[in-house]
């Protein structure tokens, strides 16, 4: 699958969450997502960037513009070197929270995008990949 371009943003403070949102919005507009799809992917990115900061102790967000045939897509990867998630299935359930959130972060973000992939190893880190196709 050809990758047209990519960009890496560090997430170490609360302000970075806002930058991630703005960057994702800009890219979603570039691939001509509808307004609803833009809002969905920006919201998902906001949730996951906050998780990255609060639970992962900060990390990196990578934006990738994908093209598959006539489809354009936006992929956003959230990677941290934090404590990892011991039970992914449980973490994806609505209402589950280990911190101060509402427990909608992971499961909610998953519903907002077309593809959602999560890899995590305890004490090594977590890597969440979301993709929104146009």
């Amino acid at each position: 699958m050809p990758t047209l371009k990519s960009e890496v943003l560090p997430v170490v403070s609360e302000n970075d969450i806002v930058y991630v949102r703005q960057a994702v919005r800009k890219w979603a507009i570039e691939i001509k997502c509808s307004l609803v799809d833009q809002t969905k992917v920006v919201t998902a990115a906001s949730e996951l960037a906050r998780n990255l900061l609060i639970y992962g102790g900060g990390g990196e967000v990578t934006l990738v513009h994908l093209q598959e045939g006539i489809r354009n897509g936006l992929r956003v990867i959230f990677a941290d070197q934090g404590p990892g998630i011991p039970d992914i299935e449980q973490a994806l359930k609505d209402g589950f929270t280990s911190g101060k959130g509402m427990g909608l972060g992971l499961g909610g973000a998953k519903r907002l995008v077309n593809e959602f992939d999560i890899e995590s190893e305890v004490n090594k880190g977590t890597r969440i990949t979301i993709t929104k196709w146009r």
Binding site: K40, D94, L104, R111, L112
Partner: peptide, 14 residues
């Protein structure tokens, strides 16, 4: 609240 925001919030489960 904008429609796109409302749709997203509902999908999010809020």
């Amino acid at each position: 609240m904008q429609p796109a925001v409302a749709i997203t919030l509902v999908e999010l489960g809020l």
